[in-house]
Design a binder for these strands. Structure first.
Length: 383
DNA sequence: AACGCGGGGAG
DNA sequence: CTCCCAGCGTT
């Protein structure tokens, strides 16, 4: 029996935004979602019988802000390469970032390896089985901790991702979309919807329901089994006035950081390709000042040689230069002459003209963040 | 609470 | 083009 307050007792006023909900409505929605999930759940690879808790944890980290369709291939490769936390803990970080591929937010890969080391060292290589213990690990917040505890261990937790929040807000609060991040009050409010039994099916089901039916962009209300009870639908699906402004991408620091990481990965791959097994890698990015390339021609030469890579006789290293030249100076013909690793990204950089200062700052940030390693004027993926 | 952080695919 | 995606950590 759920303890209720507010309307029934008159002691606590119903909080605006997170209204009190009747027991019958809760039970109706729970049953509908759980039945719907049993009938229509996608066969995601990490839902297969026998998936280890570690594999579930990896899937959750990879899925943070990344569509599951892009996660699946990387997830399979990771688990084949690093079947347990100890395997990942012992891996070279350069390889970890390389195999993270283009999932985005590569810092997640670093945090995942850190978590693996904590699990291997402090938890006997076993993924913690409570949300509280999981949340203490690097890169694991409230959502991921609850999800892993529920899906991998069967703990009754409140899983509150963007999908769940949207479903609950629409069905029970009649609003279009949740706020940017869940408040403490919303989290407490959401707990009442998790059933005493079948909570794993509820957690997975309501998340899946938000991903497939109650979607953000074009919700499929015509085929929604909750259409008759959904407060948002019954209210005529009002659209909230202001939405959070979208983040720019072209020309931003984030894009440039990604471009630098691309260069480092390409250099790393090229060094590996060259069979440099003993020293393992030697990659580098040297930041060249562009002031001497005002006429443009030397910029092209420099860029071309950078794309081709440069082999150092002394170390058999591959060096890649990242130039700070204005992209405007590179016409299409010149860009076509560039190698794939550098040219593609640099062409989309709007104001790379900016400055060596900017690139230097971002490189320093990457080193600080642990995404790059600096040795003299050479930059590489971290060991 | 607000911000920074990647990258891609759908509308 | 804009929006959105199984968020987290820092300020």
């Amino acid at each position: 029996m759920t303890h209720r307050t507010s309307a029934e007792t008159g002691i606590t006023p119903t909080a605006p935004g997170f209204p009190d909900v009747s027991e019958s409505a809760i039970e109706r929605v729970q049953t509908t979602i759980i039945d719907w999930f049993a009938a229509t759940a996608r066969p995601l690879p990490w839902r297969a019988e026998g998936t280890s808790a570690w594999a579930v944890l990896v899937s959750e980290i990879m899925s943070q802000q990344t569509p599951v369709s892009r996660v699946a291939p990387r997830w399979s490769e990771w688990l084949e390469r690093w079947p347990t936390p100890a395997d990942l803990a012992a891996a070279p970080t350069a390889e970890v970032l390389q195999r993270w591929d283009r999932l985005g937010y590569p810092r997640r890969a670093l945090r995942l390896q850190e978590a693996a080391r904590v699990i291997a060292d402090d938890h006997d290589n076993q993924v913690p089985d409570t949300a509280a213990a999981l949340e203490a690990l690097p890169g694991i917040g409230a959502y991921t901790a609850a999800a892993v505890a529920s899906f991998a261990h069967g703990e009754r937790t409140t899983v509150l991702d963007t999908n769940v929040r949207r479903v609950l807000i629409r069905v029970f609060a009649g609003r279009d979309r949740p706020t940017v991040s869940p408040s403490r009050r919303e989290t407490v409010w959401a707990e009442q919807f998790v059933p005493a039994t079948d909570h794993v099916a509820w957690n997975a089901g309501v998340m899946e329901f938000g991903a497939l039916v109650c979607t953000a962009r074009s919700p499929k209300c015509e085929e929604c089994p909750l259409a008759d009870i959904c407060a948002w639908n019954l209210a005529g699906r009002p659209v909230s006035a202001s939405k959070p402004k979208t983040q720019k991408w072209a020309g931003t620091d984030r894009q440039l950081r990604g471009a630098i990481m691309d260069v480092l990965k390409a250099a790393h791959a090229e060094a590996a390709e060259a069979g440099d097994r003993s020293t393992s890698v030697v990659e580098g990015v040297s930041v060249a000042e562009s002031s001497s390339a005002a006429d443009g021609s030397s910029v092209v030469e420099g860029a071309a040689s950078a794309a081709a890579g440069r082999r150092s006789a002394a170390t058999d290293a591959v060096a890649v230069d990242l130039f700070t030249a204005p992209t405007a100076d590179l016409d299409d013909e010149c860009l076509a002459a560039l190698g794939p690793a550098t040219s593609v990204k640099l062409t989309t950089m709007r104001d790379l003209s900016a400055d060596a200062d900017r690139i230097s700052r971002l490189i320093a940030d990457l080193v600080t963040d642990g995404l790059a390693h600096r040795s003299g004027d050479r930059l590489s993926l971290p060991r």
